[in-house]
């Protein structure tokens, strides 16, 4: 085995290809802008990416089970509005927090009931709840000014610091850790993969497909609710259109990280890395002075490049690392 082949084994590690692209991008921004690696910028980048990373992590459960959740965008906006509203009206911090998480839970329950209970297409159901949620947020914020709570412990949720690390980031990391454990180490996590790979086989293996589908939407809703609470605490104001388009960023983040939209493949840390990748990309572009009009083009190109690179790397690895006979190669090509 040549050195070349040995070094290429690194790429075979799960998620290594995306990580390498991420590091190259960071190196480029660091050279192009001296401000990129300053403590201030690193701090801000982490704080601002919290909501995107959390949304992507919650969505990963749904994606692995082979579904899709578009409602998380208006879910995070409405949860932020509810939690801020509660806090502004004198609710204690814990109650305000619960108000936000409960809003997320309601989204998850409604989605789950329609999708798992009635067997309706998840795309349409979550599209409808996205629309209803965004509309309710519009109506709600048109009648009440959602700016500024005086509750300092609520604001400390995202703005405080523990040992120099923002609390919002700490909370997000703990949640990511819990989600990763739930996905990788528990029987429930395995059933999610099973349902995503082949629902019929999972059903025959005595997995309750309906229950699993219901629970992944509930999880996605709750995590988006927590994201809303942190977002409200960070911004301390809620605009009518808050959260609009977040669902597409979250989906893009998951895909860049290597979570398959077809289901059955992915993990929390990969989704989080993908979402963080996109936040860093948009921040870095701002720093090196790219016209904001270019952002959507660059983001679109980055998504295509990341996914194509990931696929290309895997295909290439299959051909270099495991030399196979022409017959077997033809068979695998046919199978694809």
């Amino acid at each position: 085995m040549s050195i070349f082949q040995r070094s290429s084994r690194v790429l075979a590690i799960d998620g290594a290809a995306v990580s390498i692209v991420f590091l190259i991008m960071c190196a480029y921004f660091a050279i192009a802008s001296p401000y990129f690696l300053s403590p201030d910028n690193i701090h801000n980048t982490f704080v601002e990416s919290v909501s995107a990373v959390l949304l992507a992590a919650g969505l990963t459960f749904v994606l692995i089970s082979g579904g899709i959740d578009l409602s998380i965008g208006s879910n995070i906006g409405l949860s932020a509005a509810m939690t801020l509203f509660a806090s502004m009206n004198g609710a204690p911090t814990v109650l305000a927090l619960l108000a936000g998480v409960a809003t997320g839970l309601i989204f998850g329950l409604v989605n789950g009931a329609f999708i798992a209970g009635l067997g309706v297409s998840d795309f349409i159901v979550t599209l409808a709840t996205l629309s209803v949620g965004a509309g309710v947020l519009q109506v709600f914020s048109a009648s009440t000014q959602l700016t500024g709570t005086a509750d300092s412990s609520f604001l400390a949720l995202a703005r405080g610091e523990v040992a120099g690390i923002p609390t919002g980031v700490l909370i997000a990391v703990v949640i990511l850790f819990v989600l990763e454990i739930a996905l990788i180490k528990t029987p429930f996590g395995r059933t999610i993969y099973a349902v995503g790979i082949n629902p019929n086989a999972a059903y025959l293996a005595a997995v309750s497909v309906r229950r699993t589908k219901f629970l992944v939407f509930v999880i996605s809703g709750i995590v988006a609710g927590i994201g809303g609470v942190l977002l409200a605490s960070h911004l301390n104001s809620v605009q009518p259109g808050l959260g609009g388009g977040y669902e597409l960023t979250a989906i893009a983040g998951c895909v860049v990280g290597g979570v398959a939209l077809a289901g059955g493949r992915g993990s929390i840390w990969r989704a989080a890395l993908g979402a963080f990748f996109l936040s860093v990309l948009s921040r870095g572009l701002q720093l090196i002075g790219v016209d904001p009009l270019w952002f959507s083009i660059v983001t679109g190109a980055a998504i295509v490049a990341a996914v194509a690179f990931d696929r290309g790397a895997q295909k290439w690895l299959q051909s270099t690392l495991r030399p196979v006979s022409p017959v077997a190669a033809a068979a695998t090509q046919n199978a694809q």
């Binding site: 597409l248 077809a262 679109g300 996914v307 194509a308 696929r311």
Partner: peptide
């Protein structure tokens, strides 16, 4: 590329 990703990118571009 998955259909969703390719056309999402085209939407942005």
């Amino acid at each position: 590329l998955p259909d969703f990703v390719a056309t999402l990118a085209m939407l942005g571009v």
